[in-house]
Protein backbone atom coordinates (compact mmCIF):
# COMPACT_ATOMS: atom_id res chain seq x y z
CA UNK A 1 0.00 0.00 0.00
CA UNK A 2 1.24 3.41 -0.85
CA UNK A 3 -0.37 6.78 -0.48
CA UNK A 4 -4.13 6.54 -0.93
CA UNK A 5 -4.05 3.25 -2.77
CA UNK A 6 -6.09 0.96 -0.52
CA UNK A 7 -6.12 -2.18 -2.61
CA UNK A 8 -4.92 -5.35 -0.91
CA UNK A 9 -4.23 -8.53 -2.81
CA UNK A 10 -5.29 -11.26 -0.38
CA UNK A 11 -8.12 -11.93 2.04
CA UNK A 12 -5.50 -12.54 4.75
CA UNK A 13 -4.25 -9.02 4.26
CA UNK A 14 -7.82 -7.70 4.06
CA UNK A 15 -8.66 -8.98 7.54
CA UNK A 16 -5.24 -8.58 9.17
CA UNK A 17 -5.67 -7.50 12.78
CA UNK A 18 -9.11 -9.04 13.25
CA UNK A 19 -9.00 -10.79 16.62
CA UNK A 20 -11.24 -12.69 19.00
CA UNK A 21 -13.80 -10.70 21.02
CA UNK A 22 -13.88 -7.87 18.52
CA UNK A 23 -17.03 -6.19 17.21
CA UNK A 24 -17.67 -6.53 13.49
CA UNK A 25 -20.29 -4.98 11.24
CA UNK A 26 -21.28 -6.96 8.19
CA UNK A 27 -23.27 -5.36 5.37
CA UNK A 28 -26.19 -6.96 3.58
CA UNK A 29 -29.93 -7.52 3.79
CA UNK A 30 -30.65 -11.22 3.88
CA UNK A 31 -28.09 -12.61 1.44
CA UNK A 32 -28.28 -9.52 -0.78
CA UNK A 33 -25.16 -7.36 -0.72
CA UNK A 34 -23.11 -9.42 1.74
CA UNK A 35 -19.28 -9.47 1.59
CA UNK A 36 -19.13 -13.17 0.82
CA UNK A 37 -15.39 -13.63 0.52
CA UNK A 38 -14.63 -11.72 3.73
CA UNK A 39 -17.14 -13.86 5.64
CA UNK A 40 -15.61 -17.02 4.19
CA UNK A 41 -12.17 -15.80 5.18
CA UNK A 42 -13.32 -15.31 8.78
CA UNK A 43 -14.39 -18.95 8.95
CA UNK A 44 -10.77 -19.95 8.29
CA UNK A 45 -9.45 -17.68 11.05
CA UNK A 46 -9.02 -18.68 14.65
CA UNK A 47 -11.29 -15.95 16.03
CA UNK A 48 -14.17 -16.46 18.44
CA UNK A 49 -16.30 -14.42 20.82
CA UNK A 50 -17.20 -11.97 18.08
CA UNK A 51 -19.99 -9.43 18.42
CA UNK A 52 -21.60 -9.29 14.98
CA UNK A 53 -23.79 -6.40 13.87
CA UNK A 54 -25.80 -7.23 10.77
CA UNK A 55 -29.46 -6.88 9.81
CA UNK A 56 -29.83 -10.65 9.46
CA UNK A 57 -27.87 -13.74 10.38
CA UNK A 58 -27.58 -15.35 6.97
CA UNK A 59 -28.98 -18.82 6.33
CA UNK A 60 -27.64 -22.03 7.85
CA UNK A 61 -24.99 -22.67 5.23
CA UNK A 62 -24.30 -19.25 3.75
CA UNK A 63 -23.36 -15.77 4.91
CA UNK A 64 -23.08 -15.20 8.66
CA UNK A 65 -24.69 -18.61 9.21
CA UNK A 66 -21.25 -20.05 8.50
CA UNK A 67 -19.75 -18.18 11.46
CA UNK A 68 -22.63 -19.25 13.69
CA UNK A 69 -22.12 -22.88 12.75
CA UNK A 70 -18.48 -22.60 13.80
CA UNK A 71 -19.58 -20.83 16.99
CA UNK A 72 -17.39 -17.81 16.29
CA UNK A 73 -20.11 -15.32 17.19
CA UNK A 74 -21.13 -14.87 20.81
CA UNK A 75 -23.33 -11.78 20.47
CA UNK A 76 -25.52 -10.90 17.53
CA UNK A 77 -27.17 -7.51 16.97
CA UNK A 78 -29.81 -7.84 14.23
CA UNK A 79 -33.37 -6.89 13.35
CA UNK A 80 -34.61 -10.16 11.87
CA UNK A 81 -33.21 -13.65 12.19
CA UNK A 82 -36.07 -15.83 10.99
CA UNK A 83 -34.19 -17.52 8.17
CA UNK A 84 -31.63 -19.34 10.23
CA UNK A 85 -32.36 -22.51 12.25
CA UNK A 86 -28.82 -22.72 13.72
CA UNK A 87 -29.33 -19.22 15.01
CA UNK A 88 -32.63 -20.04 16.67
CA UNK A 89 -31.16 -23.12 18.35
CA UNK A 90 -28.14 -21.23 19.73
CA UNK A 91 -30.34 -18.36 20.87
CA UNK A 92 -32.84 -20.59 22.69
CA UNK A 93 -30.04 -22.57 24.37
CA UNK A 94 -28.51 -19.32 25.62
CA UNK A 95 -25.26 -20.01 23.77
CA UNK A 96 -25.76 -16.90 21.70
CA UNK A 97 -26.56 -13.50 23.15
CA UNK A 98 -29.02 -11.75 20.85
CA UNK A 99 -29.94 -8.09 20.82
CA UNK A 100 -32.91 -7.69 18.51
CA UNK A 101 -33.04 -4.11 17.27
CA UNK A 102 -35.67 -2.47 15.05
CA UNK A 103 -34.33 -2.20 11.52
CA UNK A 104 -34.56 1.58 11.26
CA UNK A 105 -33.05 2.04 14.71
CA UNK A 106 -30.21 -0.32 13.74
CA UNK A 107 -29.54 1.65 10.55
CA UNK A 108 -29.59 4.95 12.44
CA UNK A 109 -27.39 3.62 15.27
CA UNK A 110 -24.74 2.80 12.67
CA UNK A 111 -25.21 6.03 10.73
CA UNK A 112 -24.93 8.00 13.97
CA UNK A 113 -21.89 6.00 15.09
CA UNK A 114 -20.07 6.79 11.89
CA UNK A 115 -21.08 10.45 12.12
CA UNK A 116 -19.84 10.92 15.69
CA UNK A 117 -23.29 11.15 17.29
CA UNK A 118 -23.28 9.14 20.54
CA UNK A 119 -27.04 8.65 20.88
CA UNK A 120 -30.36 9.88 19.52
CA UNK A 121 -34.04 9.93 20.40
CA UNK A 122 -36.48 7.92 18.28
CA UNK A 123 -40.18 7.12 18.67
CA UNK A 124 -39.50 3.61 17.41
CA UNK A 125 -39.98 1.03 20.13
CA UNK A 126 -41.50 3.33 22.73
CA UNK A 127 -43.71 1.29 25.08
CA UNK A 128 -42.28 -2.00 23.78
CA UNK A 129 -39.66 -4.42 25.16
CA UNK A 130 -37.05 -2.59 23.04
CA UNK A 131 -37.33 0.46 25.31
CA UNK A 132 -36.87 -1.45 28.56
CA UNK A 133 -34.07 0.03 30.66
CA UNK A 134 -33.56 2.94 28.29
CA UNK A 135 -34.06 6.63 28.98
CA UNK A 136 -37.27 8.04 27.48
CA UNK A 137 -38.28 11.64 26.99
CA UNK A 138 -41.37 13.53 25.93
CA UNK A 139 -40.59 16.07 23.22
CA UNK A 140 -43.38 18.24 21.81
CA UNK A 141 -46.03 15.88 23.12
CA UNK A 142 -44.54 12.67 21.76
CA UNK A 143 -42.60 9.95 23.53
CA UNK A 144 -39.10 8.96 22.45
CA UNK A 145 -36.49 6.39 23.42
CA UNK A 146 -32.78 7.22 23.74
CA UNK A 147 -30.75 4.83 21.60
CA UNK A 148 -26.93 4.58 21.71
CA UNK A 149 -25.04 4.64 18.46
CA UNK A 150 -22.83 1.79 17.24
CA UNK A 151 -19.28 1.61 15.96
CA UNK A 152 -17.09 -1.43 15.37
CA UNK A 153 -13.51 -2.65 15.20
CA UNK A 154 -14.06 -3.87 11.66
CA UNK A 155 -16.75 -3.03 9.11
CA UNK A 156 -17.04 -5.53 6.27
CA UNK A 157 -18.69 -3.96 3.29
CA UNK A 158 -19.66 -5.11 -0.17
CA UNK A 159 -19.63 -2.58 -3.00
CA UNK A 160 -20.37 -2.85 -6.69
CA UNK A 161 -17.52 -0.60 -7.80
CA UNK A 162 -14.62 0.76 -5.82
CA UNK A 163 -11.76 2.82 -7.13
CA UNK A 164 -8.32 2.17 -5.69
CA UNK A 165 -8.77 5.15 -3.32
CA UNK A 166 -11.82 3.53 -1.76
CA UNK A 167 -14.55 5.64 -3.34
CA UNK A 168 -17.60 3.38 -3.56
CA UNK A 169 -20.69 2.85 -5.67
CA UNK A 170 -23.37 0.37 -4.63
CA UNK A 171 -25.82 -1.41 -6.90
CA UNK A 172 -29.62 -1.55 -6.51
CA UNK A 173 -30.82 -3.01 -3.19
CA UNK A 174 -27.37 -4.44 -2.48
CA UNK A 175 -26.59 -1.06 -0.88
CA UNK A 176 -28.81 -1.56 2.19
CA UNK A 177 -26.62 -1.33 5.35
CA UNK A 178 -23.30 -1.16 3.50
CA UNK A 179 -23.00 2.65 3.14
CA UNK A 180 -23.56 3.33 6.85
CA UNK A 181 -21.32 0.49 7.98
CA UNK A 182 -18.54 1.82 5.78
CA UNK A 183 -18.53 4.93 7.97
CA UNK A 184 -18.67 3.16 11.34
CA UNK A 185 -15.72 0.77 11.34
CA UNK A 186 -12.35 1.62 12.88
CA UNK A 187 -11.09 -0.44 9.98
CA UNK A 188 -13.42 -0.60 6.99
CA UNK A 189 -12.73 -3.35 4.51
CA UNK A 190 -14.53 -3.27 1.18
CA UNK A 191 -15.03 -6.31 -1.00
CA UNK A 192 -15.81 -4.98 -4.46
CA UNK A 193 -17.17 -6.59 -7.59
CA UNK A 194 -15.10 -4.23 -9.71
CA UNK A 195 -12.03 -2.19 -8.86
CA UNK A 196 -11.34 0.75 -11.14
CA UNK A 197 -8.75 3.52 -11.37
CA UNK A 198 -9.31 6.91 -9.69
CA UNK A 199 -11.21 9.18 -12.04
CA UNK A 200 -13.25 6.38 -13.56
CA UNK A 201 -16.11 6.92 -11.12
CA UNK A 202 -18.07 10.13 -11.68
CA UNK A 203 -17.55 12.19 -8.48
CA UNK A 204 -21.24 13.12 -8.63
CA UNK A 205 -22.21 9.46 -8.46
CA UNK A 206 -20.05 8.25 -5.60
CA UNK A 207 -22.17 6.94 -2.70
CA UNK A 208 -19.36 6.56 -0.16
CA UNK A 209 -16.26 8.79 -0.32
CA UNK A 210 -12.95 7.02 0.16
CA UNK A 211 -12.14 8.76 3.44
CA UNK A 212 -14.17 6.09 5.25
CA UNK A 213 -12.43 3.16 3.61
CA UNK A 214 -9.18 1.50 4.72
CA UNK A 215 -8.82 -1.57 2.53
CA UNK A 216 -10.27 -2.69 -0.79
CA UNK A 217 -10.19 -6.22 -2.12
CA UNK A 218 -11.38 -7.66 -5.40
CA UNK A 219 -14.11 -10.18 -4.56
CA UNK A 220 -15.81 -13.03 -6.32
CA UNK A 221 -19.44 -13.58 -5.53
CA UNK A 222 -21.90 -16.45 -5.73
CA UNK A 223 -24.82 -14.03 -5.09
CA UNK A 224 -27.12 -16.70 -3.79
CA UNK A 225 -30.83 -15.85 -4.00
CA UNK A 226 -32.88 -16.43 -0.87
CA UNK A 227 -36.43 -16.25 -2.29
CA UNK A 228 -36.39 -16.84 -6.01
CA UNK A 229 -39.73 -15.44 -7.18
CA UNK A 230 -40.73 -14.99 -10.80
CA UNK A 231 -43.82 -13.73 -12.58
CA UNK A 232 -46.46 -16.43 -13.01
Amino acid sequence: MAGLNKVVSSYTEALAGLKSDMTIMVGGFGLCGIPEGLINQMTTMDVTGLTAISNNAGVDDFGLGLLLQKRQISTMIASYVGENATFEKQMLSGELNVILTPQGTLAEKIRAGGAGIPAFFTATGYGTPVAEGKETREIKGRHYVLEDSLTSDFALVRAWKADTMGNLVFRKTAANFNPMMATAGKITVVEAEHIVEPGELDPDHIHTPGIYVDRVIQGTFEKRIEQRTVKA
Partner: peptide, 8 residues
Protein backbone atom coordinates in the same frame (compact mmCIF):
# COMPACT_ATOMS: atom_id res chain seq x y z
CA UNK B 1 -38.61 -15.10 18.03
CA UNK B 2 -37.70 -13.98 14.57
CA UNK B 3 -37.25 -10.30 15.22
CA UNK B 4 -39.22 -7.18 14.45
CA UNK B 5 -37.48 -6.22 11.21
CA UNK B 6 -38.80 -2.80 10.21
CA UNK B 7 -42.27 -3.14 11.78
CA UNK B 8 -41.53 -1.06 14.90
Amino acid sequence: IKGMGGAM
